Simulated assay, not measured.
Amino acid sequence: MAVAMAAWSFGIHFSTDQNGRALEKPMSSGACKGASFGFGTTKPFCILHKGRLSSSGTTITLRATSVTSVEEGNLVDTDTVPTPKVIIDQDSDPDATVVEITFGDRLGALLDTMNALKNLGLNVVKANVYLDSSGKHNKFSITKANTGRKVEDPELLEAIRLTIINNLIEYHPESSAQLAMGAAFGIEPPEQQVDVDIATHISVNDDGPNRSLLYVETADRPGLLVDLVKIITDINVSVESGEFDTEGLLAKAKFHVGYRGKALIKPLRQVISNSLRYFLRRPTTEEASF
């Protein structure tokens, strides 16, 4: 089997409107803000339209490699396109952010993805690949290049997520229709939109005396991780760590949260659940705001 390779250029689109289209503003308020993800605020980080990644005026163009398998001169047609998954894990390693990517047995070495992450000011300090019944899993550990520590800023975590998904769409165009972000910057958007009311599930449970476990499942879109953390911290609930999974058209987030060093009491659980439900089920931007 021969492999043909061609280079592609693309940009990252960060925020979204109510239809899932990418906007030029990283948060629904239209402002570029720093946010807390367990350890404090960081320098504001903005993703702009048309491939410009802006932080203090820096412009970066990311590139991915598109790979098409050909057999005897014809494109290889597969029966079933697997569901792409991108997991950002803040729990399993105290010193690094762990990212795992699966897409059946179609993923290659992801060297372009690693290079794109380096362009975000990150180091890939460890990488490994393993196989199981669900296919090939690519897992690697990421730290900030300037500090050598794990990523704590939710905007940068979201930039990591969108960079990986962008590369996945470019590297495997057939994944576009399988991902919610395919509607924003993919080659082929999903055939159906997810009903947010049906897809959204929120639960809060105790996870020991000093913290609670918040679980959120909803329709995915660009900027969702940043917005979830903002809603949680706006009601003075701290986010210690968590995991954010992109699974096809859905996003699944698990956050370890607390209030003044304690687990959330029942009334506060209800407040955070109601706030998130209201936010996720209403339009996040207005046409007049941009």
Rank of each mutant, 00 (worst) to 15 (best):
F279C: 01
E240M: 07
F185M: 04
P222D: 02
A199T: 04
P189T: 04
Q192Y: 06
S275C: 07
V216G: 01
G258F: 03
F279A: 09
K266D: 15
D245W: 00
L276C: 14
N236V: 01
S238E: 11
E240K: 08
E243K: 13
V204P: 00
F244K: 03
G208A: 09
L276M: 15
L276S: 13
H201Q: 11
N210F: 07
N236A: 08
A263L: 12
V271W: 07
I265H: 15
R277W: 11
Y259M: 05
D245L: 12
G208M: 10
L225C: 07
Q192R: 11
F244P: 07
S273A: 15
R221H: 08
K254V: 05
K230N: 09
F185E: 02
A219Q: 13
P222L: 03
L225Y: 13
N236E: 13
Y278K: 15
I235T: 14
L264C: 04
E243P: 01
E191N: 08
I272D: 03
S241W: 09
L214E: 03
F185L: 01
V239I: 15
G223D: 00
D234W: 07
L268R: 15
V204S: 07
I198D: 12
R269L: 11
T233Y: 03
Q192V: 13
E247F: 05
V204R: 08
K230Q: 10
E188A: 05
G248N: 08
V257K: 01
P222A: 06
K254Y: 13
F279N: 05
L280N: 06
E240Q: 10
I265C: 11
L225N: 12
Q270S: 15
R260S: 12
V194Y: 00
F185Q: 00
L213A: 10
N274P: 00
A251D: 09
V216H: 00
G186M: 02
L228T: 04
S275V: 04
I231T: 10
V271Y: 09
F244D: 12
G242F: 04
Y278D: 15
S273T: 15
A263C: 06
Q270F: 06
V204A: 11
